[in-house]
Simulated assay, not measured.
Amino acid sequence: MTTQQYLAGRILLAMPGMFDPRFERSVNVLCVHDEDGALGVGIGHVREGVRFHDVLEELGLDPGVSPNREIMHGGPVEPGRGFILHSTDWGGSDTIEVAPLCGLSASMDVLRAIAAGQGPSQWIMALGYAGWGAGQLEGEMRHHGWYAAEGHREVLFETPPEGRWSATWRAEGIDPALLSNETGRA
């Protein structure tokens, strides 16, 4: 008897030639994965035209000492909903541990803490998320859709967004230029 291996805390990479063009070269932190499905937050594509201070202003928050960082396109589901992926040196009442990689918070508390200079030492904001129903992600992985890499913190927090896809493959010891756009059948 085998047990299901869940992949929360890993970085999900779109395979070359992925069947859904919305996810081409997609890099997602897999935050939740269990028998009910999965939730990932995209960190590989910048959301054009919106920065951190814009989000704070729309919410009526003073940006305080926060840097005016770019915002990631977190995924196609609920594109107006914000998420902060952050280092584990900060946690609020709603923080979800995405072990061993980071924390995930989606409350006003984390935004206020960042604006006040009392938030996590490392963080990324994304709008939207990617979601999969029960068994959907596993099916997509079997059909050459995704690769579940280890959770590499240096990729998450120290690599520019446009380099995260390639950097994650390299951290796995794989040259992405050698990957095929399709799978075979034996």
Rank of each mutant, 00 (worst) to 15 (best):
G82T: 05
M72Y: 09
E35S: 14
I43W: 07
A14N: 00
C31L: 01
C102P: 07
G91Q: 15
H53V: 10
F52Q: 03
P100N: 03
D36S: 14
G40K: 04
V77Q: 03
P76H: 14
F19D: 15
D36Y: 07
M108E: 13
R112P: 03
L85E: 00
E58P: 00
V41I: 15
M15P: 00
S107L: 13
G82S: 04
I71F: 12
G49P: 03
S93F: 10
V46D: 05
E97V: 11
I84K: 00
V29C: 03
G103D: 06
I43D: 05
L85H: 04
P100S: 05
G44P: 00
P67C: 04
F52W: 09
G75I: 09
A14M: 06
D34G: 05
T95Y: 06
S87I: 11
V41D: 02
D54E: 11
L56M: 15
G82A: 12
L39F: 13
N68R: 15
D20C: 08
E35G: 12
W90Q: 12
V65A: 08
D36P: 01
V32S: 02
L104R: 03
E58T: 14
L104A: 05
H33C: 02
E24D: 13
H45C: 09
R81T: 12
P100W: 11
D20M: 12
L111D: 01
G64N: 06
G37D: 15
G75F: 05
M18S: 06
V46H: 08
G44N: 09
L85K: 01
P100A: 08
S26F: 01
L56K: 09
V46E: 12
C31S: 07
N68G: 11
L111H: 02
V32P: 00
M72T: 07
P79Y: 14
N28H: 10
D89W: 07
G42N: 02
G60Q: 12
L56F: 09
R81P: 01
E35F: 09
